[in-house]
Design a protein around this nucleic acid. Structure first.
Lengths: 179, 179, 179, 179
DNA sequence: AATGAATGAGGCTTCATTCAT
DNA sequence: GATGAATGAAGCCTCATTCAT
């Protein structure tokens, strides 16, 4: 799965040949089919593994009783820790358009995570801390900004110093907060 | 090219077959090779066409002498107008990872546009209007947020009413501005 | 299709590789897929072509108003002429068990031909010329005997001289007729 | 071997995978290779087992001193008993074209059985009871008719009641006997 | 003896590209 | 210019066979 991840990140699902993955993993192509019924099953397994991992981390770290500003900081840092610990997984999950081969179960994981984010936004809006607009919009603006930042980092266009990280986190809070 | 665009959006470069494009365009596969030397030449031509179109629009609309807040609004609205006028082109250019098949010339267009954005950020920073951090970071946060919003719209998770548009624009300004 | 026929006769459907057929036909494997959607489509097309050809011949030659003994002789000779004119086609259609890959349409042709044979037997039974037992049994005994004879001929265990042919025809009539 | 027989009947030699046979037998694929050197060795062992079984039965039941009409009846009934007791074995041996993978020893069993049949026909011809034509032809007509009948039964197109059986036996005798 | 993971050659099929018309 | 049949390399996947356990 590690080899498959690297290949999919580099060349995408359709651009990656099963023998390429096998070569990278130093196994025979046929062996892959002992563990995954098809190339699609493999990509779905990969996607689920890493999306679930984010979800698990987010849920584990989330401070239920902390104020929204603190919740935001924790989640933001958790996402960042994840993206830095598993850059290829992050790139795979976020920088590719998977719509043509992911199955319903894989998409469901994504949806659940988004629902969690929206619920968090709604609670903070009820406290008057966030802008009173579509909660989906606010969540997508922040996720989008985060992804943009990480992609720029991945492409070596910005370096993630503590100052940059802290400024980015504050900037994203400013995106959604009332003033 | 219209047919190719649709196919590439739906299934990506490697997932799209030349005969598929030909079928969608109701021409013969061979005909495509009168106009493009190869599949790669076609995807590069497409990418250049639509990235140049953004660049052209941005440069044409950019109010050199207006204050930064106004410049920001104009560019943001111009990008939005573009994304709504050519949603498939926008999705193609922004939601796919093209790194494995774009050539140097195509990448240069992208880089020029980003340089323009960075220069604009730097000028506004000099006026003390924007946060004094990495200008690349600020630009990527805004572009990322914009992309996140448009993708959510494309996936029908938010509707772009005038209120949403206006709130999103203000939120993105808040991302980068000092307070 | 001629090449495919030879290959299928020699090694059966599953024992024949598409590249083998292509090599025998002196074309590229891919070319086969311009004319047939799959290997199964090819074998079905072949089966239909040759089963229809028998059906066509039988219907064309059948003497509606002649007495049953004469009808029998005509059909028997027509089948023989067919089997000698197209020995590979006959072997393909009769000596292989096609049940795992023929589709409904192909099977229908076979069924229609058998129904025709049964109807003929029933009419002759009503005249008291044939044994008063299951008409399907009588038809299968004659078809089976015919196939046995042709297979022995195909395997060069008997030679089909005019005397042999005539004796075989009479023997098959004796199989079904009352005495 | 029972599992292999079922698989070979259903999909033929080339259409059957060793893992399929193993799955049906509820053993591991590797285990098959403790008992048979290869897939070909397995199919040859199966063919020999069941062809020998027919031969054994025929020789055991054959009434050396009875008149030909009685000998015929005994053999016909013995074949029928065999075909009904082991329908899959019968279908495997008779409805598939084995020429591409049977070895010399397997083919020899078949030839010996046929020689026995021919010798019996010749003796009856010398008594003037059978038609004075190629004995191979007569034997093949009867075997062919028998196979046709059994295949129709296998495909549930005729039911083998005592009346049908008796009529079929008499019809086959009529095929070969003088009148 | 039995297992079943691993192998890699080979099978079916697709598809970028060519070229005669 | 346009066509689409033809090509054959390459992709996904299967499967006969091996071998360490």
């Amino acid at each position: 799965m590690e080899a498959a991840l690297q290949c999919f990140v580099d060349r995408g699902f359709h651009g990656t040949a099963i023998p390429e993955i096998a070569a990278r993993a130093k196994i025979a192509s046929g062996t892959i089919y002992h563990y995954f019924a098809s190339k699609e099953a493999l990509v779905n397994a990969l996607y689920r593994k890493w999306k679930s991992e984010v979800a698990r981390r987010v849920l584990a770290a989330f401070p239920q009783t902390a104020p929204p500003r603190e919740q935001f900081r924790v989640l933001w840092n958790e996402m960042l820790a994840y993206a830095k610990a598993h850059p290829a997984a992050f790139a795979f999950v976020e920088y590719h358009n998977h719509s043509s081969y992911l199955d319903a179960e894989s998409l469901a994981i994504d949806r659940n995570l988004k629902d969690f984010g929206v619920a968090m936004v709604v609670r903070a809006q009820q406290e008057g801390l966030l802008k009173p607009v579509s909660p989906v919009l606010l969540m997508e603006l922040v996720f989008g900004a985060f992804n943009g930042m990480m992609r720029a980092h991945w492409e070596r266009r910005i370096e993630m110093t503590p100052e940059v990280i802290s400024a980015a986190e504050q900037a994203c809070w400013d995106t959604v907060s009332t003033h």
